Amino acid sequence: MAFDLPELPYGRDGLAPHISEDTLNFHHGKHHNAYVTNLNKLIEGTAHATASLEEIVKASAGDATQAGLFNNAAQVWNHTFYWHSMKPGGGGKPTGKIAELIDRDFGSYDVFATQFKAAGGGQFGSGWAWLVLKDGKLSITKTPNAETPLTEEGVTPLLTMDVWEHAYYLDYQNSRPNYMASFLDNLVNWDFANQNLADAS
């Protein structure tokens, strides 16, 4: 079962001016597509050929002999999740259940935003910042490279912010803080986080 590059949930210009069409042409059309292509080559003729993407990620996690398989499968999953973590006209304070839990578990949205940006900014090199549900509470975490909370028992990813340089360099150059602020203020898809929260309960 070969995997296909998932369609973006909006047009390539749908996140402009905060993330440009040029960035999405490279990030989705080149980077994400390369992970899909590599993954299909790696699973062809193996026991993973009929497995789901989530099954491949979990089966290859932590196995040094499967590092190439894990890196490509996890990056396919992470990027697909990231595209849905944003929407045109998104950003700002959340509403619904996720807003209640942010206030309960962080004290306020502003505290959450500060900690989320600190996670993204504190990730040295390439990686991801995540809002997850763990043991019934919201938590912020960060992962390097292709690592993902999908592999952690009892942890449900709710949304993610990609902090690999190719996610923002064309639009923000070396200013990761400006990109992260724009992600929260203008892009984050709280409807997606609420849906993931509902699916977890």
Score class of each variant (00 low, 15 high):
residue 3 F to A: 09
residue 3 F to S: 04
residue 5 L to E: 08
residue 6 P to R: 13
residue 7 E to S: 13
residue 10 Y to L: 06
residue 11 G to E: 13
residue 15 L to G: 05
residue 16 A to M: 03
residue 21 E to N: 04
residue 21 E to W: 03
residue 21 E to C: 04
residue 23 T to N: 14
residue 23 T to Q: 08
residue 24 L to P: 01
residue 24 L to I: 07
residue 25 N to I: 00
residue 26 F to L: 15
residue 26 F to G: 09
residue 26 F to H: 13
residue 26 F to A: 01
residue 29 G to N: 10
residue 30 K to H: 12
residue 30 K to N: 09
residue 31 H to R: 12
residue 32 H to Q: 11
residue 36 V to M: 08
residue 37 T to L: 12
residue 38 N to T: 12
residue 38 N to S: 15
residue 38 N to W: 02
residue 40 N to H: 06
residue 40 N to Y: 09
residue 41 K to M: 11
residue 42 L to C: 02
residue 43 I to K: 01
residue 44 E to S: 14
residue 44 E to Y: 03
residue 45 G to M: 07
residue 45 G to R: 04
residue 45 G to I: 11
residue 48 H to T: 01
residue 49 A to H: 12
residue 49 A to N: 05
residue 57 V to W: 03
residue 57 V to H: 05
residue 59 A to P: 01
residue 61 A to Q: 05
residue 61 A to P: 00
residue 62 G to H: 03
residue 62 G to Q: 07
residue 63 D to S: 07
residue 63 D to V: 14
residue 63 D to R: 14
residue 64 A to W: 07
residue 64 A to K: 15
residue 67 A to G: 08
residue 68 G to K: 11
residue 69 L to K: 04
residue 70 F to Q: 11
residue 71 N to C: 01
residue 72 N to T: 14
residue 72 N to E: 14
residue 72 N to Y: 02
residue 75 Q to G: 03
residue 75 Q to F: 00
residue 76 V to G: 00
residue 76 V to I: 06
residue 78 N to T: 02
residue 78 N to E: 11
residue 79 H to K: 15
residue 80 T to P: 00
residue 80 T to F: 03
residue 81 F to V: 02
residue 83 W to C: 06
residue 84 H to D: 07
residue 85 S to F: 05
residue 89 G to L: 08
residue 89 G to N: 06
residue 92 G to C: 07
residue 94 P to G: 05
residue 96 G to R: 06
residue 97 K to M: 08
residue 98 I to Y: 03
residue 101 L to H: 05
residue 102 I to D: 09
residue 105 D to S: 09
residue 108 S to Q: 06
residue 115 Q to G: 04
residue 117 K to W: 00
residue 118 A to M: 03
residue 121 G to K: 10
residue 121 G to C: 03
residue 122 G to Y: 04
residue 125 G to A: 13
residue 129 A to I: 09
residue 134 K to E: 15
residue 138 L to R: 10
residue 138 L to G: 11
residue 139 S to F: 02
residue 139 S to K: 14
residue 139 S to R: 13
residue 141 T to K: 13
residue 142 K to G: 09
residue 143 T to Y: 09
residue 143 T to D: 14
residue 146 A to I: 01
residue 147 E to Y: 10
residue 148 T to A: 06
residue 148 T to H: 08
residue 149 P to V: 08
residue 149 P to Q: 10
residue 150 L to S: 02
residue 151 T to N: 11
residue 152 E to Q: 15
residue 152 E to P: 00
residue 154 G to V: 07
residue 155 V to Y: 02
residue 158 L to S: 01
residue 160 T to L: 13
residue 165 E to G: 08
residue 166 H to Q: 10
residue 166 H to K: 02
residue 167 A to I: 06
residue 168 Y to G: 07
residue 168 Y to K: 04
residue 170 L to F: 07
residue 173 Q to C: 00
residue 174 N to Q: 14
residue 176 R to M: 04
residue 178 N to K: 14
residue 179 Y to K: 08
residue 179 Y to E: 11
residue 180 M to N: 01
residue 180 M to A: 15
residue 182 S to F: 01
residue 183 F to G: 02
residue 184 L to H: 06
residue 186 N to Q: 14
residue 186 N to M: 00
residue 186 N to H: 15
residue 187 L to V: 07
residue 188 V to C: 03
residue 188 V to K: 04
residue 190 W to R: 05
residue 190 W to F: 13
residue 192 F to E: 11
residue 197 L to Y: 05
residue 199 D to A: 15
residue 199 D to L: 14
residue 201 S to V: 11
residue 201 S to Q: 15
residue 201 S to F: 07
residue 201 S to H: 09
